[in-house]
Design a protein around this nucleic acid. Sequence first.
DNA 1: TCATAAATGTAGTACGAATTACATTCATTT
DNA 2: AAATGAATGTAATTCGTACTACATTTATGA
Lengths: 244, 244
Amino acid sequence: MQRRLWYIKNAALFSWLQEEELQRLASRSEMVTCKKNTTFYFAHEQSDSIYLVKQGRVKLTRTSAEGREVILDILAPGEIFGELAVTGEEIRTHSAVAVDDAMVCIITRQEFEDLLKRHPEMALRVLKLVGLRRRELEMRLEDLIYQPVANRLVLTLLWQARRHGARQADGSINLPLSQKDLAHLVGASREAVADQIAEFKKNGLLETGYRSLRLTNPRGLMQILTTEVEFDVSELLDIEASKP
Amino acid sequence: MQRRLWYIKNAALFSWLQEEELQRLASRSEMVTCKKNTTFYFAHEQSDSIYLVKQGRVKLTRTSAEGREVILDILAPGEIFGELAVTGEEIRTHSAVAVDDAMVCIITRQEFEDLLKRHPEMALRVLKLVGLRRRELEMRLEDLIYQPVANRLVLTLLWQARRHGARQADGSINLPLSQKDLAHLVGASREAVADQIAEFKKNGLLETGYRSLRLTNPRGLMQILTTEVEFDVSELLDIEASKP
DNA sequence: TCATAAATGTAGTACGAATTACATTCATTT
DNA sequence: AAATGAATGTAATTCGTACTACATTTATGA
């Protein structure tokens, strides 16, 4: 219970609430452990709860009838999902898979809606969240239409690096991602992604591991874009933004 | 002023407000005419207002640095856009073009935020709107990755038919859309779309006109999908759902 | 009303990326 | 510790669709 409180308090969406509300949420929420690689949130089920990631990473996916997967996002502790339940979504359109052993906190939609009623500011915050994710999607849609796999891959790598990358002392960034997941994030075949990775490796931009990558030269990866693409990606990599 | 009030009252997002609020909105909003094919809302500008379409159709687009266009949506009277301004968007990511001679109503973000504060329920409604559009985007993202142009085109035609199609007495549906716009909605080249249209025409599924299409057999178009795709699209065409 | 620009129709070519097919390496489990 | 399955690396082939290039039709406005 104390841990639950701690986790809720540390989620950006809830941190601003008064102690009393936090207590209430903590006491009314459910805490669940999810073993690595298990799906614990299923599309086509009733959209009746909101989830908060407490430990481990969680992969949000859409799976087509033919079994083809799109990864919408990979969430880190402190992030929430399932929030579409309060936007009129009756039936879930996503599934969620634990990428690592994970822990999530489940808040019923009812409870969350009550919270929204008590704190109108919360609706604003959820609105910002949904809006932000929508803008991200619009960007990906555009890239998907107009960018070749190489560019999309770079964008995805930098995006993921920013969200989950572990910065090493030497400036390289570790990314715990399989090529398959990467492909589903990029919207390309696993092989096409592997080919590109091999290419980048040859050019000294990254090193490969089992279910992981190591970006040894993130800045170099960025160059690939700026020569072929016109938009500003510097915000994707906010590392060492002010170096001599 | 009376007309402004009438228009606002007839927008789903505002219709539930009390007369007093409607009056207030009407008096504080600005009404603007936009000639056909003019852009009147620009990406990269400050996100400082919300728009309501009153007359004509409005095309919402994203344009890349290289000038490539994606059409996010085509709006009809009563629909709003620019609502991302209240989701933390500082700078607009869309542009808006009048497809026909159009009229729009402009509400400042400040005014809209005040409205949100006075009516917490409004935040919920905007949330639903943004959430709905996000879900639509996710669907398109998936289609873009896994569906060939033919299927995406059919889906787009049925989607647009539902939103803007003028049903004729004989059951056919008129779609006022150029092939170029269609291509930008589908996420394909103009030529690829033209080829598919020619194919559908040959099979008696539609007829072509200048800047317009006529779906003579919407149900037949749907068949194309159900044989090759697995998901349920019947909701896209809610016409004659209950026929003998 | 004629000129100009935009939209449409079609065909050929080129290219990117999916698909198919394995061989190899690595992790997990019993 | 061996066995099984997953992840990776790579190559050959096929396929879809973008690109290029016009010819034709239709609208628009000078």
